[in-house]
Amino acid sequence: MDFTLKIWRQKDAQSQGQFKTYQLTGIGADNSFMEMLDELNEHLIKNNEDPVHFDHDCREGICGTCSLYINGRPHGPQKAITTCQLHMRSFKDKDTITIEPWRAQTFPVIRDLVVDRSAFDRIIQSGGYISVNTGGVPDANETPITTSKANNAMDAASCIGCGACVAVCKNASAMLFVAAKISHLAQLPQGKVEAESRAESMVAQMDKEGFGLCTNTGACSVECPKEISLTHIARLNRQYYKAKQASDYIPDKEEIHEG
């Protein structure tokens, strides 16, 4: 298969970027999208041109690193997969493919298609965990939990933090990401303990980072490679409002986490 690739090139965070067009021929239909880009880069390097920088790691859909906006959709045209799971058979021969990085104020471009997603890390650091003393291990069967809650928590836990939700959201909101973490932990007994403060601190950090506000268009869930549901956002809303009216936290008076 042959393709015309319109790719965003940007030298570094301070430079203006622009689109460059490349022609690529002889790509196998069963090549993955990234193998196709590797092929392009081989040609570029041989021609002494800087290869296209793009994020990738596991290349099997689980690490959340890959992040390309392909022909107007995060992770390309297929449902419930990441960029690395996309194959060239999803395109037609001679197609023009436009490739851009995730666009958001909170995800500044580092180089070419690579963006800085450390905002997500800071949100998780602000409360996306459970505070537990290590040491003795209680019998897991002493902590009862219904199967449906455990399954629901597992669904939420499958978020890989890729940021496609932010990328596709017209408001660049991180609600689905935050909601996935909140929903994952709050439904489990160990996570319930800090559910209130977790909701407050993660939303506070999310706002501080500069993500937009959720207006419930639902695009995030449609494009999520792990199909995280909007019901998790509803749960986050409930927890946040409950926490805001009833929790002990008063801003500017104390830190959210006492421990």
Partner: peptide, 13 residues
């Protein structure tokens, strides 16, 4: 080996 670019930028190669 041919590696383009420098050590003072993000350089995946």
């Amino acid at each position: 080996v041919k590696v383009l670019g420098t050590n003072d930028e993000l350089n995946m190669s």
